[in-house]
Write a protein that binds this DNA or RNA. Structure first.
Length: 810
DNA sequence: AGTGTGATGGTTTTT
DNA sequence: CCATCACACT
């Protein structure tokens, strides 16, 4: 089945006009720095582009593509440019298009690993036991399937949750292990039945003519490895290969790339080992670290000039990342001078931290300081774990500060969207059992577990799909009175919709659906849009939500409307289904400006003038779990996360931590993150809430200053803080109010020099834990045996010496 | 078939 | 503490 006709997708590519090539020598080279230019010009042979944060990586990459096209080294259809996210792919496309001054109509091989794999797989599906119109399972379908298998295997689905199995299988697929290839050392997982279930799962997928995300890559690799002639074709066609975010590739992706690159060996991998933060989902930093071994003679080009951040921000980031071992090594530098140092501030607890940051954001927005007003759109809060967002959301809601959370549930992951999609899937391929299962009783049709089991049984015994099973069941009268009518209506509905789909797109009658080119001309008559509406109407799905009086119902209807609207850009329902998971972005661009709240992971690749990095506390960041599970490797990945966080900031970066945080409902004393100790002194401003008691500092033991790592403690004496330029500047600028307005004042001020004052046996007082005795001293941290709370490790700055009278010193 | 209750466990996430 | 989910109840 090697009958790939070279003339279809490839010919669709429109070669660049000769005019464009001869216009000017190479304007795209003009505004590149030497390293970038080298990366652009090193077209042949393997190249590793080590591009630090903010060094113009995308610019170099896109210029490289433009260069290849303009010099005629490659036609648009001969360049394979792979990214991880659709967003990145889209951006690359747009930028290349802009540079060329024309739409990049024909770069069929620019996309994500997954979308390109789908394209390839559709061609050769039969080689791995699929039909070319296979469906791609989402996580939900996948879990349901696995659960069925677990139950079928007579296992307790509680002790052996589908989620875990899904994770295991995903892990294996990331390593490009088919069931047969899973090493025996790994097979012990999941009650010793992991591989067995994996095998059954694959079997089931095949019978469903379906694939999960991991399969897209894995099947391609299998095909390449098994059919050298097919691999050769691709190797021949794809003369130039470029990979973005190479540090994030997993083994399967690595194999995929290596196989394809073995032809011309013109592979350019762009990445930054310091920004590898996806080890936990299978990314192998090793891929980038051993690039030169994999591709002997590789040219390594370092992009180190940063155009994004101030020198202080860069220095702070560098200071942190230097603590990692085994780096390829790279030092960011900038021509920019000056700017504010990275600010560091400690808070009493998480709420206080959120309050302070909220105030700070508002102050920056108003421009109360000499700084020009900063739009909310230009400010972001980057957290380690999404549950940290809550404190900010709560706070911002109460003060009416508009915010947006990035990276919430995706549009197409929402319940109503997936339900609607299941209906569309049934209309396109009525035998889609997973879709059938999903919506057969949504809206409620009186078809509960019992009825569904009957359908399942019938279908299985006749070896047909659920829809056909249901039909048979109806014919035989094997179903009770009330459900029968409803089921009949459902079945007839599917028939009707399917007929309508065929009518709209007659070519669908063929078993083989040609892969769509991304930019196919939209279907002008919009008949499929009307059909979609009809389906949702007739199925009763729309009215289900109309009759729903829960507060989220209107939003869901809104989303459905959006879904239907999105259809307009497509040629037909099936094209939509194919691409929906690829294009649907929830980038609802709102006109109102908003602060962004997101995880550090979600922030990779983004930049903001003002960045807040809260929650730098050991256990939270670095995450305890990472360290427990992956030891030093985990810690180093956390550190890279810190590096990513800091380097998101352009002009102002504020790191903060809280002394107390509620973790699972329990108040916990927190220690400042070890990463704080790694921030280089010279580039950090230790901020101090001005405090109501600047004067009473010593006596009260709760004056200005705050706890930090030991090094901070040494440098940030009160005098240092108050005399620091940053502090003075802030004071001078504080026309309306000081930098922080401590509302729960006394608790918000923490002493940094406190440790020196304590010795073992001292009686101390802690705001949240009450009275206790110092049991041990470790750097700036004290072990305190609290009367009520037991032994806790606390930062010295957060406790005060208890007076003889035992009174609270305020 | 739909609602209520107790047990459970609880980073990071794209495709 | 709080969300989620399986199970049991009506």
């Amino acid at each position: 089945m090697s009958g790939y006709d070279e003339s279809d997708a490839f010919e669709a590519a429109i070669p660049l006009s000769q005019r464009a090539m001869s216009a000017r020598p190479a304007p795209y080279l003009d505004d590149l720095n030497p390293a970038q230019r080298a990366a652009v010009l090193a077209t042949d042979g393997p190249v590793l582009m080590l591009a630090g944060a903010g060094t113009g990586k995308t610019k170099a990459l896109t210029s490289r593509i433009v260069h290849l096209l303009m010099t005629g080294k490659a036609r648009p259809n001969e360049i394979l440019a792979v990214t991880f996210t659709n967003k990145a792919a889209r951006e690359m496309k747009e930028r290349v298009g802009r540079m060329l001054g024309a739409a990049v109509e024909g770069m069929p091989w620019m996309g994500t690993f997954h979308s390109i794999s789908v394209r390839i797989l559709r061609r050769h599906a039969e080689l791995v036991g699929l039909k070319s119109n296979f469906t791609i399972l989402d996580t939900d379908d996948q879990l349901r399937l696995l659960k069925q298998l677990i139950v079928a295997a007579n296992m307790d689905e509680k002790r052996w949750p589908a989620r875990q199995l899904a994770g295991l299988i995903d892990h294996w697929k990331n390593r490009a292990w088919t069931p047969a290839k899973v090493p025996s050392s790994e097979a012990a997982g999941f009650n010793n039945r992991g591989t067995e279930l994996y095998d059954r799962y694959q079997e089931r997928l095949r019978s469903l003519n379906a694939c999960d995300f991991g399969d897209l890559l894995l099947h391609c690799v299998t095909i390449f490895q098994t059919y050298p002639d097919i691999l050769e074709q691709y190797q021949r066609w794809l003369r130039y290969i470029m990979v973005d975010e190479y540090q994030d590739t997993n083994v399967a992706q690595y194999l995929w790339l290596r196989l394809l690159a073995q032809g011309h060996r013109n592979i350019c991998c762009v990445g930054d080992d310091d920004q590898s933060i996806y080890g936990w989902r299978g990314a192998e930093v090793g891929n980038i670290l051993r690039f030169e071994k994999d591709f002997p003679g590789a040219e390594v080009i370092r992009l180190e000039q940063n155009y994004r951040s101030t020198e202080h921000i860069l220095a702070a980031a560098s200071g942190v990342i230097e603590a990692n071992s085994g780096r390829l090594g790279k030092t960011l530098w900038t021509e920019a001078r000056g700017g504010e140092k990275v600010r560091l501030i400690g808070h009493w607890d998480g709420e206080e931290e959120a309050r302070w940051i909220g105030d700070e954001i508002e102050a920056l927005q108003r421009g109360t300081r000499q700084l020009a007003p900063v739009s909310l759109n230009d400010q972001a809060i980057l957290v380690r774990a999404s549950h940290q967002m809550r404190a900010f959301e709560d706070r911002f809601l109460t003060i009416g500060l508009p915010y947006r959370v990035i990276g919430g549930p995706r549009f197409y992951e929402r319940l109503e969207i997936r339900d609607a999609m299941a209906y569309f899937r049934l209309a396109v391929s009525p035998d889609d059992d997973l879709a059938f299962e999903r919506v057969v009783n949504t809206p409620k049709r009186g078809l509960g577990d019992k009825a569904q089991q009957e359908i399942q049984r019938m279908a299985r015994s006749s070896g047909v799909s659920l829809l056909e099973g249901a039909r048979e069941l109806l014919a035989k009268g094997g179903i009770g009175g009330k459900g029968a009518g409803q089921l009949r209506a459902f079945v007839e509905g599917i028939d009707r919709w399917h007929a309508a789909v065929l009518n709209t797109r007659p070519e669908l009658a063929d078993a083989v659906i040609e892969p769509m080119l991304p930019d196919t001309a939209p279907n002008r008559d919009h008949s499929h849009v009307r059909l979609a509406e009809t389906i949702l109407e007739e199925s009763g799905y729309t009215s289900m939500w109309q009759n729903d009086k829960t507060p989220e119902a209107p939003g869901r209807l809104e989303n459905l409307k959006e879904l239907v609207k999105a259809l307009e850009q497509f040629d037909g329902l099936q094209g939509f289904l194919e691409h929906v998971s690829l294009i649907m972005d929830n980038d609802s661009q709102d006109a109102t400006e908003k602060v962004s709240i997101m995880t550090l992971h979600a922030a990779k690749g983004l930049e903001f003038p003002v960045v807040f990095l809260p929650g730098w506390e050991d256990g939270l960041f670095p995450s305890q779990r990472s360290m427990d599970e992956s030891g030093l490797k985990g810690l180093e990945e956390e550190r890279r996360l810190a590096y990513v966080g800091i380097t998101r900031a352009e002009t102002l970066c504020t790191i903060s931590f809280a002394a107390n945080r509620r973790v699972y409902g329990q108040w916990q004393s927190q220690l400042p993150s070890r990463f704080i100790d790694e921030l280089p002194d010279r580039h950090v401003d230790v901020l101090t809430p001005p405090g109501l008691y600047g004067g009473g500092y010593g006596a009260a033991g709760m004056g200005a200053g705050f706890g930090g790592g030991s090094r901070i403690e040494e440098r940030a004496t009160r005098a240092d803080v108050y005399n620091s330029p940053g502090w003075k500047r802030l004071q001078d600028r504080s026309t309306t109010r000081p930098i922080a307005q401590p509302r729960e004042s006394r608790s918000s001020v923490i002493d940094l020099n406190a440790v020196a004052r304590f010795t073992e046996g001292d009686r101390v007082f802690h705001q949240k834990f009450g009275y206790g005795t110092v049991a041990g001293i470790e750097g700036d941290k004290l072990d305190v045996d609290f009367e009520k709370a037991g032994v806790k490790k606390v930062v010295a700055g957060f406790v005060t010496p208890a007076t003889e009278a035992g009174d609270v010193p305020f």
